[in-house]
Nucleic acid binder design. Structure first.
Lengths: 222, 222
DNA sequence: TGCACTTATATGATCTTTCATATATGTGCA
DNA sequence: TGCACATATATGAAAGATCATATAAGTGCA
């Protein structure tokens, strides 16, 4: 379970509440990690219980009190221990979309093409999101943290600016991979659509021009 | 839960046992779906309970009996219903490796480079596996099923050959995406390593030539 | 000879994740 | 005026995934 370590990582940068951490997740690591709010709360509780962070409760009017988590020295050590630990495996992936493409022979070609086109839309949405994050990034995490209200206006960031810039370098690097993969996937969708379409038209040459498409598609139904 | 539908999908092609299905998974969809044996057994049991497949028990000497699952008409319908259902979201990803890179500013540059290089090894292993699957693929699923003993020697495949070739088309397409993504990731690792190394050498120009590297790295420790 | 691996099933325990729900107020939009 | 959404926490329940373990014979390798 590395949600814990992701949270410890962000807390290393700055104390935060569970709700804020959810926002930070969405605006920085969403392309390779996602977290449910309820799970964040539970994990923060675990972090507290294990003595990896301390909590300060800040009452609010009309709203539930903010529980602000601050990393302890133990938490910091655990985070660094995890951070240095080598990664041995590729991430576990379960891609419903590819599973459907894999079984494409049980559909009509046109239906598979629909799946591919729809997925391209999903990818475009995701790319738009990445661009938004990218736009935000140049001013660094600081701006993000400020916009989230974690850093008060006029207050200095609670960590070195050099380190912050260094951090930005890595954040951008991971984002760049996100772009690369999304773009490669989009390209692949186009290629596959073309491949499927050309297959249909090749058939049309040798057999009847129009009705054949449906025949072939029907044949695909094993 | 689409493990169920993945299993139904393979059972649409050919009856099989849980153990065989595990092997089929590893040799075809491992790059976008992975399944634990114990989970496969449990899901097959669910499939049976829901009337999506029937089971024939085949005793063996010295070994537990083989439970051969055959898809029912209901199972086939459920599979096709799922297959046509549009996919609205990108897959949920949790990439431990990228999480560590993201927090790279808390490590020394050399340590991050180590992470990247190690990951490249993991990717190479994966690419080798893909190539193996690719080599196997041209003779189609048939050969795979035969090698797994699902189809007896000399017996015809229990489904049309045209459909089989069509199936191969899609299987290869998903594999191609697997290659693309693994290659793009590998490239990104190299680029990122270079970027980090050039950063270090730029610093060396302006400051002391050798000792500086360590200084900078130390500075990265926020 | 010994050890590891393959074949083949299955369950208990636990971990992780998701979904639904509850509460309560302020803000912006139509 | 009404409705959705942001803020802010939290829990119950269920679904889904992983890990350990059990059984038991055969095969291949050093």
């Amino acid at each position: 379970m590395s949600l814990k370590h992701a949270l410890l990582g962000f807390l290393t940068i700055c104390p935060a509440t569970g709700y804020e951490l959810k926002g930070i997740f969405e605006n920085s690591v969403q392309h390779f990690w996602n977290a449910d709010l309820s799970q964040i709360y539970r994990t923060l509780d675990e972090i507290k219980t294990e003595g990896l962070a301390t909590v300060r409760v800040e009452p609010q009017e009309g709203k539930p009190p903010r529980h602000i988590y601050s990393l302890s020295e133990k938490g910091r050590e655990e985070f660094l221990r995890w951070l240095r630990e080598p990664v041995k495996d590729l991430p576990v992936i379960r891609n419903h979309f590819l599973l459907k493409i894999f079984f494409g022979a049980f559909l009509q070609k046109e239906e598979v093409i629909e799946h591919l086109k729809r997925y391209q839309n999903v990818l475009q949405e995701r790319l738009a999101k990445y661009r938004k994050i990218e736009h935000m990034a140049p001013e660094g995490f600081e701006s993000m943290l400020r916009s989230k209200g974690i850093i008060e206006k006029g207050t200095a960031a609670p960590f070195e600016l050099t380190a912050l810039k260094n951090h930005l370098l890595y954040a951008i690097a991971t984002l760049r991979l996100g772009f690369k993969i999304a773009e490669a996937t989009d390209e692949w969708c186009t290629e596959t659509i073309n491949e499927l379409q050309s297959l249909a038209s090749e058939k049309s040459k040798t057999e009847k021009p129009k009705s054949v498409k449906k025949q072939r598609a029907k044949g695909a139904k094993v």
